[in-house]
Design a protein around this nucleic acid. Structure first.
Lengths: 275, 275
DNA sequence: CAAAATACGTAACATACGGTACAGCGCTCC
DNA sequence: GGAGCGCTGTACCGTATGTTACGTATTTTG
């Protein structure tokens, strides 16, 4: 059953030629506001010509553009009048043909944060913000991108943020630079990598404070870690999901940024100047 | 402080003559839908003449009717785009005061998937699974980790998955290997990177099919893309959030894996053997 | 109660909006 | 490599829309 124009588009977008598909994507991207404007504005936003927009609405089954707009407006009106039914798509949260994957991921995040106190996050953020030493980040086979993501942001708001990439032997050489005043952020989920565990242990011996992102079964690195963040990873897929950890990472990035606001703002301005 | 047109009307309705007051009441009654229709319809609904409507919007301080409509639309858009602030939406059990960051992220994901049909995801997955050619992945400053994450998974279940890393000049040299049968997955969110846009354009000219992960404002690369995935990125933080795109990426990885199950399983076993 | 001012609607007008015909281009399929 | 088809944009057209001028009705004021 097709109840909204958005669904209608999703249903037919596959059969559309390139130009009309761009129109469809533009509309979906800022649904449905663009559709309420004039054909000229719509076409400009989509980067196509007016006739393409008209052919697009025609393909959706509307006689003309005004009819299409009216339909959008009716949809909007219905949405606004019953905020309860709002999220019009997932009528029964948790079911929907939508995506069991999405539902599981959302659940994972809620669960992850339920077991994560604001206090704990704040502590970690503070530790990362007080720049007594350097910040190292590293991850496993699938989680290294998370380390990179975090490093990319942190490196902008403070100095001495180092992502450990490449071969295992490369990291090991960096150990010599690491000491009590430094922090090591490690991402490690199943199947836990021996190389990471070994590395964490050595760092720990040198007095480095370890912040561990892992799954609910806890990587063995938890033994050495000062702070452990355990994220849910189970989803209906062949792979584990790192999405919950990703969100925690973003939250942390935000918190650190806030704490460094004064310093950070200056750094960011300087950086913008350099680009 | 007056922030909405509704407030503006409430503020001035006392000073209006009878006809304009009826117009005001009619608009408030079904706010703001009537205001988006034509002057003729508005006037009919209010039982007054067209000029009265025009005098009404003029009294509100607008130069002309279209300007008034644009203002209404902007207001609507703002309402729709921040689902979190919207009507006390059910805090969903287990959330509590926890983190506005988390709430915003969850909303972003729901919104992102609401605009994303199963069909579209399936199409992209199929395209990635039918290995006629190679699969290239690349991302921007903050999103390159997402490209890596996806590449790390895809590379396991199929051959010829290449993550384009390093300097811009490095990618350009890979262009020569790219052709009609290949797919290029690009991650690009604000602020869009010129280098990526240029690269996408050249790839497009070579006939490469582009799958674009971007934000709701659409990277200019959307012009060249065969498939566009627009994720919500707004969160209460100094940074944009890529979490929604991350989840889409994971979903896609899962879908591709399922399609390649037969082949994939064999490959995974072989790989395990090699380690 | 008269006269003026204000408000409102009718009707004419100009603009810009949606719609269409047509030609060029690229793509696919022999 | 060539022929056919389908998609797209340019240019133009008719019209519906917002806008304005003006005359009438209604209220207000001296």
């Amino acid at each position: 059953m097709i109840s909204s124009i958005a669904e209608l588009i999703a249903d037919r977008i596959g059969t559309m030629p390139a130009g009309e598909r761009r129109a469809a994507q533009t509309l979906i991207a800022s649904y449905p506001m663009i559709g309420l404007k004039t054909v000229a504005e719509f076409s400009a936003a989509a980067g196509v010509s007016s006739p393409t927009i008209l052919r697009f609405v025609a393909r959706l089954g509307f006689q003309n553009y005004p009819e299409f707009q009216s339909s959008l407006q009716d949809e909007l009106a219905a949405q606004l009048q019953s905020p309860a039914i709002r999220t019009l798509n997932p009528p029964s949260p948790g079911s929907g043909s939508a995506s069991p994957m999405l539902e599981a991921t959302l659940d994972n995040m809620r669960e992850t944060f339920r077991h994560l106190s604001d206090r704990q996050l704040a502590d970690i953020a503070t530790r990362l913000a007080e720049r007594r030493g350097k910040t190292f980040l590293i991850g496993g086979r699938f989680t290294d991108p998370l380390a990179r993501y975090m490093a990319a942001h942190l490196a902008i708001i403070q100095p001495d943020v180092i992502h450990l990439a490449g071969q295992e032997s490369m990291w090991r050489d960096r150990l010599i630079d690491m000491g009590k005043r430094d922090v090591l952020v490690i991402f490690d989920i199943r199947r836990y990598q021996d190389s990471l565990v070994r590395f964490a242990e050595k760092a720990h011996q040198r007095g480095v404070q370890i912040v561990l992102f892992t799954d609910q079964w806890l990587s063995p690195i938890a033994r050495f870690a000062r702070h452990v963040i355990a994220g849910r990873t189970a989803v209906p897929s062949a792979w584990d999901s790192s999405a919950a950890l990703f969100v925690v990472a973003e939250t942390l990035i935000g918190a650190v940024t806030r704490q460094l606001e004064a310093d950070g703002a200056r750094r960011i301005r300087e950086m913008e100047g350099l680009r």
